[in-house]
Structures are given as structure tokens and as C-alpha cells.
């Protein structure tokens, strides 16, 4: 009895217990829905067979139909724009801010903390906020751009098909900026100061120090930040209903919002599942990059 008990409290038994709780949790709440989703994308699903698992097998029919939709190309393009625009904006601005706050000026840490406000705010709130900022006739952004003379006429960020994808992308950059900055700050703080001093004495100027010390030392952090950025951007949903609802005429629609529209507006669950399975492929690649880049976090 005591042997069993001690194996639970400090032996392998306890380890196995902890791991299995996690595994059961993951399998039940992530694994199963995932598999169910994939299965559904190969089936014919309608309102009558929604509550059964054995539905007619559709082969690749759902995929063929999704791909042949007239809006497919546009949404693909928009998704790529949204994802890469967001990641590029978040990363470059986040890196710049992280470097800026590494300089020791009064209240640097406090101000950096305040930046996190954008990250802790719910996406819908951020969406509503940016909805007002970007509003055509009375929006703050237009007022500022007009005031400093960048534009002459009113820009209809949310209703102009050429601008609407910019509207959601800008909002998303703002939303993810703080998160990027925080992760990159941690990476920067982990680089020993004397490396920079040694490089400086070796003759490196600021640009050299950035390219030959900061970037290589940050390689794993950068990989992780970019991969997480891709994952979070593909997950970003709240901004779309709050700002443009994917419109006008799908000009700001992206895959994740499209999948939701299929499933919960058109009740075409099979196509909704199909779109999300296609996205799964991209997220999987990002996840592999993330795991790979954080595999040796120990610095030499």
C-alpha cells in the first residue's frame, strides 16, 4: 500500500498521472473537435444529418466547390494580405519599440507596461474602437491625416473596397503590437550587455551591432514571435464583425471569417469545415516553425 502511495506522490506514477490529465484534456477538447472537423470536410452535411456522425462520404467535392467559388481568389489574397501585413507591421513596430524601451530613460518600464493595455483588451472592443477611429466622416484618423495635409478628401476606410482590408489590418497591427514588443523585449534583455561593449571596442557601430549581435542572438525569439504572430493572426476573428463584417463585397473578407460565415450564417457546415481544414495546413506549418525555433532556448 505504501509502495503504491509513494509511487503516486514522488515516483513515476505521479508523473504519469499529471501527463495523462493534460493528454485527456487535450484529446477531448482539442483533438476530437479537430478530427471531427476534418472528417466533416469530407462529408455531405445538411440540417437533417447534423446530429449523426455517419453521413454520406463526399470525397473532395467540398474542396472542389470551395475552390471554385468566385470569391475564393479574393479571400485568399485578402487573407495573405491580412496575415503578412499584420505580422510585418506588428514585428517591425514591435521590434522598434522593444529596442526603444531598452534604453534607460525614466519610467521606461512603466510606459512599456502601459502598452500592454492594447493586448489585454477584448478584440471586439478594439474593433469598435478602431471602427470609430476609421469612420469616414467623423473619424479621428481622417481628421489627423487631413490636418497634416496627407489627404485632401475623406477616406472611407471601412466602405471603400480598396481600403477595407487596410482597416482591419491596421487595427490588428495595433492589437498585436504590444505582444510582439513584450516577447522581443524579453529576448533583448537576455543578451548580455558586455557583448555589445566587446563589439563596440572591436569597432562595430550601431548598425553592425544590430546586425551581427542583436539579430543572431535573437534568432530563436524572432522565430517564435513570427510563428506566434501567424497563428494569432489566422485566429483573429473579432475585428471583422466589429469593423467591416468582411465587406464591402468580400473586399475585407478572410478565410477565418469566411469559414464562420459558411457554418453559422449559411449553415453549410461542410464548407465551413473545409475552409478551416485548409487553414489548419498553414497553422501547422507555423507551429512546426515555432517548435523548431524554440527547441534550443539555452544560450551558449
Amino acid at each position: 500500500m505504501r509502495r503504491i502511495l509513494s509511487s503516486v506522490t514522488d515516483g513515476r506514477g505521479f508523473d504519469i498521472l499529471l501527463v495523462s490529465i493534460t493528454m485527456i484534456f487535450l484529446l477531448a477538447l482539442s483533438g476530437m473537435p479537430l478530427v471531427y472537423n476534418v472528417v466533416m470536410s469530407f462529408q455531405e452535411v445538411d440540417m437533417f444529418n447534423l446530429n449523426t456522425f455517419s453521413r454520406p462520404y463526399a470525397g473532395l467535392e467540398n474542396y472542389r466547390e470551395v475552390v471554385s467559388q468566385p470569391e475564393f481568389g479574393l479571400i485568399l489574397k485578402n487573407t495573405a494580405f491580412f496575415v503578412f501585413g499584420s505580422i510585418a507591421g506588428q514585428f517591425v513596430l514591435g521590434f522598434a519599440l522593444a529596442m526603444f524601451f531598452m534604453m534607460r530613460f525614466p519610467f521606461a518600464a512603466t510606459i512599456r507596461g502601459v502598452f500592454l493595455v492594447s493586448w489585454v483588451m477584448p478584440g471586439l472592443v478594439v474593433g469598435a474602437l478602431w471602427g470609430w477611429i476609421l469612420a469616414g466622416d467623423f473619424g479621428v484618423l481622417n481628421a489627423i491625416l487631413k490636418g497634416i495635409g496627407v489627404i485632401d478628401s475623406t477616406m472611407f476606410w471601412k466602405s471603400d473596397p480598396r481600403l477595407s482590408i487596410w482597416a482591419v489590418t491596421i487595427a490588428n497591427i495595433w492589437l498585436g503590437l504590444a505582444f510582439n514588443m513584450m516577447l522581443l523585449s524579453v529576448g533583448l534583455a537576455a543578451i548580455p550587455r558586455d557583448l555589445y561593449e566587446a563589439a563596440e571596442l572591436d569597432g562595430a557601430n550601431g548598425w553592425h551591432r544590430f546586425t551581427t549581435m542583436t539579430l543572431p542572438m535573437m534568432r530563436s525569439t524572432i522565430g517564435a514571435v513570427l510563428a506566434l504572430g501567424l497563428i494569432y493572426t489566422l485566429q483573429q476573428f473579432d475585428l471583422f464583425p466589429a469593423i467591416t463584417e468582411g465587406g464591402p463585397a468580400n473586399s475585407s473578407n478572410v478565410a477565418q471569417y469566411w469559414a464562420w460565415q459558411y457554418s453559422f450564417l449559411l449553415f453549410d457546415f461542410a464548407k465551413g469545415a473545409t475552409v478551416s481544414v485548409m487553414m489548419l495546413g498553414f497553422v501547422l506549418i507555423a507551429s512546426i516553425v515555432y517548435v523548431w525555433s524554440t527547441r534550443h532556448e539555452v544560450r551558449g
Binding site: 558586455d194 557583448l195 561593449e197 566587446a198 563589439a199 563596440e200 572591436d202 562595430a204
Partner: peptide
Amino acid sequence: PRKRDVAMVFQSYALY
């Protein structure tokens, strides 16, 4: 420092 033409050996060595 980079224009002073001096070299330093650090306590931590500060190897790259």
C-alpha cells in the same frame, strides 16, 4: 570606444 583603438578582456570574456 570603437575609435579609441583599445582592446578589453572582460571578466565574463564576453565571447560572441
